[in-house]
Write a protein that binds this DNA or RNA. Sequence first.
RNA 1: GGAGAGAUGGCUGAGCGGUUGAAAGCACCGGUCUUGAAAACCGGCAAAGGGGCAACUCUUUCCUGGGUUCGAAUCCCAGUCUCUCCGCCA
Length: 419
Amino acid sequence: MHNIKDIRNDPKKFKDSLKKRFLDVDLENLLDLDQKNRKLIQEKEILEKEKKEISKTKNKDLFEKSKTISQKIETLEKDQKSTKNKLENILSSLPNIPNDDVPVGKDENSNLEISKNGAIPKFDFKPKSHFELGENLKMLDFELASKTTGSRFVFVKDKLALLERAISNFMLDVHINQNGYQEISPPLIVSESTMYGTGQLPKFENDQFEINFDEKEERKFLIPTAEVILTNMGKDKIFQLNELPLRLVASTPCFRKEAGSYGKDTKGMIRQHQFYKVELVSIVEPKNCLAELERMTNSATKILDLLKLPYRKIVLSSGDMGFSAEKTFDIEVWLPSENKYREISSCSSCGTFQARRMKSRYKNKNNETLFLGTLNGSGLAVGRTLIAILENYQQSDGSIIIPEVLKPYMNKLEKISKK
RNA sequence: GGAGAGAUGGCUGAGCGGUUGAAAGCACCGGUCUUGAAAACCGGCAAAGGGGCAACUCUUUCCUGGGUUCGAAUCCCAGUCUCUCCGCCA
């Protein structure tokens, strides 16, 4: 959510900033609504003051007048509220403004590679895809999932299920013990206002799983990422300075409809309706956002370093960034079967954009109440890490060597092979 | 699902028709003291919104939404949430 005052002060700058997102805002309308809103507030306040004074005098002769004033206030208030609503509806559907150092471009073609790490493995045979490997091992079962549930679901079985759990536990341990994050086991269901807070609603409703909970209550959704619930831990809260920075990590299932990706990645478990992800969230003073983004990204790449998986880091262009982000680094892992890098983590700073939506604030040194900065990043997507391990650690016989750091989590198992 | 109790500032907690935006304590910030810190003492400290270059000022807000009243944190109605007890249950 943008601050209307900033827009009012420098409308042109605001319009230009959103052009980087290839959006053309109707500023006229926005400013008109803002002006109308403020005018109505002023009129209302004059009457309110008058009414207040009458009641203070306790003069019975003026009581009738006070009644008529009340009626006028009521009409003004209705008008003002509806104007404010219109204004907020527009504001809440506008994305965050890209940071100055974000490359400007329409889509992923303008993303910039920043660094490459790790040696790409060489095979003296044609490397198989993760789904071939998994199905041959009889440890990935897509057919069964489509029978019980539908497309874009999978059964992970036996040693691969263990591997999936090992990956998740390993990541959690690194983030908790080495990177200074606090572990959270959060609700996987959130209310509508929580989804609004991080920006999933109102614009991206069609990618969310809404659940039928209780007609009378606020609408409820399955989380598309733990970012939603972790970031909202600061919802309607004013933090003391000594509570910051707050760094949180959770390993949770994520649920997405993947609307609009029909035909994309239909094979295998790259794109599923349900997947596990270890999520990092930081809540910080806004001035520390960009430094925290570097720190968070390093926390994520550390996992890949430890797993000895080759990856590259890229910075997303203005047109490719998510709705709430001001700057985003993607980390892409090497997938031998595709002969290219694929996204395994996305780390974003949202500045104060989300904090404004969920009223997440803190007291600074001067005791002023200000909006916080929020960041989120995958550390990492568990399903895709599983894929990357399968493909990068595969042997000619179809077995999978267990990465050194995961062995303690796998009962010292050395490799996964067909029974 | 049945029966009670409650919801007030960052937190704890008073107030129960008219200078109450709200006592007190804690936390926090500033100062005195101290080699430094702690303690002690002094001072400051709710939020949102409007007007103003600013000093400042005005309005709203005591869970939410209605109602009574000239006037509501305080009275009435509805709803939401939390807690306790009983039942059910992983």
